[in-house]
Amino acid sequence: MSTWLVTGGAGFIGGNFVLRAIAQGVKVVNLDALTYAGNPDTLASVQDNSLHVFVHGDIGDRALVSRLLQEHQPDAVVNFAAESHVDRSIDGPAAFIQTNVVGTLGLLEATRDYWKALDRERSDRFRFLHVSTDEVYGSLGDTGAFTETTPYAPNSPYSASKASSDHLVRAFHHTYGLPVLTTHCSNNYGPYQFPEKLIPLIIARALADEPLPVYGDGGNIRDWLFVDDHCNAISRVIEQGRVGETYNIGGNAEKQNIEVVRTICALLDTRAPRSDGQPHSSRIVLVEDRPGHDRRYAIDASRLRDELGWAPHYTFEQGIAETVDWYLSNQAWVERVLDGSYRLQRIGAAV
């Protein structure tokens, strides 16, 4: 039985990954600081599962991380822990540097020391997988896609902090030999996503009969990746990826933001129609754009496909329908998330 130390495993992607790993028989030691986006409710179904060990703590706490590594002897460390919302990084970049850069450094140092003390067989088998984002590559024009060799050009404090952590991970491989893997994903969506991101925000505001804000002209393009497909890809990279390599993970689903919002509205028109009979799309409103808003992201995931045989299972149409249905069936989860610290307000407008 494998044991993985997963950081940030109470967040959106991390939580989905933990649930999936445990269902496949992996023991997970789940380290999460439980910031505003970390939600223990996401893990309710595995609360009493012997394969799940939850630890409340910070990746930058070197003593804690070292103790967990020694106590549980994991075969892999999977680093999801990060401040991740661009708008919040505009309002307060310091927290992103502290967690994404300084915290990752502490995690790398503790992991390096643990790995160096392993016997040869376990040392060869061990992996450190760092989960990153396509935003480190900057913005694309009308054509082309990000590959693993695209030069870094981060345009927000968030993406700059993730680019910095990527470089640290690379450096620890080349300097110390730590067996690392890095993944860059496109925009994730699905169950358990904190309702500050576009898709759950629009669902929540539509159900609250509030205006549906869309930045700029709505023409910003993202490649949408259903979270279960992302988690499947990460597991594949841990088990089969080449040490020291980077793998891009995309959903093959480029959509304009306005198109995504209209799709959600159409689904809600049939599943949760407005009391006044008007379509949900009538509440769409274009608002002032985010400062430095990247125009287009697109992922070339051919390395992952060709080397490891991975491809997304969900089309966007399948994934978005499943996502809307999940939020409609889990309003109690949403209500507990919206505890007063975040009330669907606009953030990230500061310049």
Rank of each mutant, 00 (worst) to 15 (best):
Y192M: 07
P179M: 04
E196Y: 10
V214M: 08
P179T: 03
R170Q: 14
Y215N: 14
I234T: 07
D166P: 01
G190V: 01
L225M: 11
S161V: 07
D223Q: 11
K162A: 00
T175S: 09
I234K: 03
R236S: 14
F172E: 05
D223R: 06
F194S: 12
P179S: 04
R236Y: 03
L225W: 07
A204Y: 04
L212C: 11
V237Y: 00
S161N: 05
E196P: 05
I221N: 03
L168W: 00
I199A: 14
V214W: 07
S186E: 03
H167S: 13
Y192D: 06
I221G: 04
K197Q: 15
F172M: 09
A233Q: 04
G177M: 04
Y215D: 14
G216S: 12
Y215G: 10
C185N: 08
S161H: 02
D166K: 00
L212S: 10
A171V: 07
R236D: 12
H230R: 06
S186N: 07
L198K: 12
E196R: 14
L181M: 07
H184R: 15
H173S: 08
L198F: 07
H173T: 12
P213V: 12
P211H: 09
H230T: 11
C231M: 08
H174N: 11
V237M: 04
P191D: 11
N187Y: 03
D166V: 02
E210F: 01
V169T: 02
K197Y: 13
G218R: 10
L207M: 14
